[in-house]
């Protein structure tokens, strides 16, 4: 990753709560204009990292750079360009949705028209005058996103933004994030433990495991890295019979179903050879293809605890 295009960069960032270490030597690199999916199981340190990026927690070791400037020295100027939604949205239940936005608009000294714009963007215009306490979980999440979008920021930091959204809401959120990135050139740092979410929107991925980056790069790079986990999937009549007939070639195969086998992928020649051997053994081959691991499988490979 070229460092001159990084909007967010941490260098050897470490953090601990008291004696309990949370992050170790984190070198996060979020390219400008990307949707960076920050993945990790619960408790891996994602929210702590995002809090450090916003200066909500002090960095005892290492540095955080936003827009190329060191956060510790330019915090307020940097935050002027950042919109964030960290964990649950911060909403004043006694105020209407509109007034909640108005509070943040005043805090940032933004033009009055922005509140109506972001309400329309997140589809809450009709409910703007209802108290936030009457909002559903999904509406609260959308209002939280509106708060983050209010300053029209260059960088959006969103911590689990699809929490509480129904399937339609998730699809809308995904479309909105893609529009913001593609049409408005925004950079979005998106944390989630839902791989399926990240897979559909992210251009780049960082995988956090026990406070360390297990992987960082583009989605394509991650999938390339996982090619060792690709497998040849064979659809036939009787998987067990094929294994009996070809013990050398298929003895170590995984039975994926009554008529489906999986063999670790080696080469195109290996695929041709397997097809030939099955036909010679009198077994039908309905389909034979190389299956790349999904991001979910890649994530599981990266985050599974190392075997001693």
């Amino acid at each position: 990753m070229k460092t001159n295009s990084l909007l967010v960069e941490t260098r050897a960032l470490s953090f601990g709560f008291g004696p309990r270490p949370v992050l170790h030597q984190l070198d996060l690199q979020v390219p400008a204009g990307s949707i960076y999916g920050f993945l990790g199981p619960n408790g891996a340190g994602k929210s702590t990292t995002l809090r450090l990026l916003l200066g909500l927690l002090p960095a005892p070791a290492g540095t955080v750079h936003l827009f190329g400037h060191e956060l510790a020295r330019h915090r307020l100027a940097a935050l002027g360009q950042v919109g964030a939604l960290i964990e649950m949205p911060s909403l004043y239940d006694h105020l209407s949705g509109l007034d909640n936005l108005e509070v943040t608009r005043r805090l940032r000294g933004l033009p009055a028209g922005r509140t109506a714009d972001v309400l329309a963007t997140v589809g809450l215009t009709a409910d703007a005058h209802r108290p936030a306490r009457e909002y559903s979980l999904g509406m609260r999440q959308r209002l939280g996103l509106a708060l983050a979008l209010l300053p029209d920021p260059e960088l959006l930091i969103l911590d689990e933004p699809t929490n509480g959204l129904d399937p339609n809401g998730i699809i809308e959120m995904r479309a909105l994030l893609q529009t913001l990135q593609r049409e408005h050139g925004k950079t979005i740092l998106l944390s989630s433990h839902l791989i399926s979410e990240i897979e559909r929107v992210a251009t780049h991925v960082g995988v956090l495991q026990q406070g360390r980056l297990a992987f960082q790069g583009s989605v394509a790079e991650l999938q390339r890295r996982q090619q060792g986990h690709a497998q040849v999937v064979i659809d036939t009549d009787d998987a067990a019979r094929c294994q009996l007939l070809l013990p050398v070639d298929l003895g170590g195969a995984t039975v994926l179903g009554p008529g489906r086998l999986g063999v670790p992928y080696q080469s195109a020649e290996q695929m041709a050879y397997l097809a030939q051997q099955l036909v010679l053994a009198g077994q039908p081959v309905y389909a034979l293809h190389c299956q790349q691991p999904t991001l979910e499988q890649a994530f599981l490979h990266l985050t599974e605890p190392a075997v001693a």
């Binding site: 809090r51 916003l54 200066g55 909500l56 307020l76 100027a77 935050l79 002027g80 950042v82 964030a84 960290i86 964990e87 649950m88 911060s90 909403l91 004043y92 239940d93 006694h94 943040t104 805090l107 940032r108 708060l147």
Partner: peptide, 18 residues
């Protein structure tokens, strides 16, 4: 308590305000 109840401290300190 208005801020406590709204879990708003993190939002407040993520604004460009000292």
């Amino acid at each position: 308590h208005t801020e406590n109840k709204a879990l708003a401290w993190k939002h407040l300190y993520a604004q460009p305000l000292s």
